[in-house]
């Protein structure tokens, strides 16, 4: 293992080892874009050769429905000896059924992070030993963190059929009526869009709350 001298060294030696990697704009930590096929090799090299032994985070970004590539998976690794972070990002090639190779072989921590990303973003992690939903319940039909999913939610059934029958309750869209939520469908806010994005009038002060 070679000692890391500076943040620039990490990206420089990474690009020397993996020529396909490109620098990713970042305001803080060294960051690289790598092709999806090389991600695991890059992460393994970072872990074994550069001392990034601690997996901080595995997550993904949805760049809106009409953008391609739509999903970018992001890994953050930390070195407990060198006290340094690195960010690795890879674009998903398929916008419809995004898929990413699993990092569970490298870090046990990646297990739950990948389950969460699958749950909320709908990204499939190839080779994950137990890819189930972790935060939403099994059988929930949507992936809430996708940009086409409204904050208020979409009407579905409660996870428990018996209770749903007894109480006649459903998962309903939350009332946004004039809430403090601003427009963000395209990221930039202008004054005409800055009205509440989720203008849902299903119930408010005038129309009563559904039973």
């Amino acid at each position: 293992m070679t000692a890391i001298a500076s943040d620039a060294d990490v990206t420089a030696s990474l690009q020397a080892k993996f020529p396909a990697a490109t620098l990713r704009p970042s305001v803080d930590h060294p960051a690289v874009n790598v092709p999806m096929g090389e991600v695991i090799a890059v992460l393994q090299w970072l872990r074994d050769e550069q001392g990034f032994d601690y997996c901080v985070d595995v997550t993904a970004i949805d760049w809106a429905e009409d953008v391609s590539p739509r999903f970018t998976a992001v890994w953050h690794a930390y070195s407990t000896t060198g006290h340094r972070y690195v960010r690795v990002a890879a674009d998903c090639t398929d916008d419809e059924n995004p898929s990413v190779p699993t990092a569970t072989g490298l870090w046990a921590a990646a297990d739950w992070h990948e389950r969460e990303t699958f749950d909320l973003m709908g990204i499939h992690f190839e080779g994950h030993p137990d890819l189930r939903r972790i935060l939403m319940w099994d059988g929930y039909p949507h992936h809430p963190l996708r940009k086409d999913f409204p904050l208020a939610g979409i009407e579905t059934e409660l996870p428990d059929i018996e209770v749903a029958e007894e109480t006649q309750a459903k998962v309903i869209a939350a009332p946004m009526a004039g809430g403090p939520f601003v427009a963000s469908s395209k990221g930039e806010v202008n004054m005409t869009d800055a009205e509440p994005r989720a203008k849902d009038e299903s119930w408010n002060e005038q129309t009563p709350k559904p039973e």
Binding site: S26, H76, M191
Partner: peptide, 13 residues
């Protein structure tokens, strides 16, 4: 109304 204007970029803290 518009929120504090931030530059584009990615940060992790």
């Amino acid at each position: 109304t518009e929120g504090p204007q931030m530059p584009a970029g990615e940060a992790y803290f």
